[in-house]
């Protein structure tokens, strides 16, 4: 029997998983880029990003050029957690095929 507690609860949600995936694919994403790519509302995206930030999986950088912009990236811990999450998913799929 598989231990589902191994799945990171912070990542194991559709919206947050999508955010983590984009951040894993590309080093840094601005809030606007994430919003456009995921087609999420501002409030929804902010809530998910806050959860991931509180869990220490995502870092946040605020900069002001011509207008204020917030960029997000995976922390070292976030990248490791995402990798581990995928491995757990793969194990679930394998275990189900046996």
């Amino acid at each position: 029997m598989f231990d589902f507690d191994k799945l990171d609860r912070a990542i194991h949600e559709k919206g947050r998983l999508a955010i983590m995936t984009l951040l894993a694919a590309q080093r840094s994403w601005s809030f606007q880029d994430l919003k456009a790519e995921l087609k999420m509302s501002d409030g929804n995206l902010v809530t998910h990003l806050r959860t991931l930030h509180k869990a220490g999986l995502v870092s946040m950088t605020k900069e002001v050029t011509d207008r204020p912009q917030t960029s997000y990236a995976l922390t070292v811990r976030g990248r490791a957690a995402f990798k581990e999450y995928i491995q757990v998913l793969e194990q679930i799929v394998k275990a189900g095929k046996r």
């Binding site: 999508a18 995936t21 995928i86 998913l89 793969e90 799929v93």
Partner: peptide, 8 residues
């Protein structure tokens, strides 16, 4: 899990 992997 398969669906999640596809989404990823």
């Amino acid at each position: 899990a398969e669906q999640d992997l596809r989404v990823i």
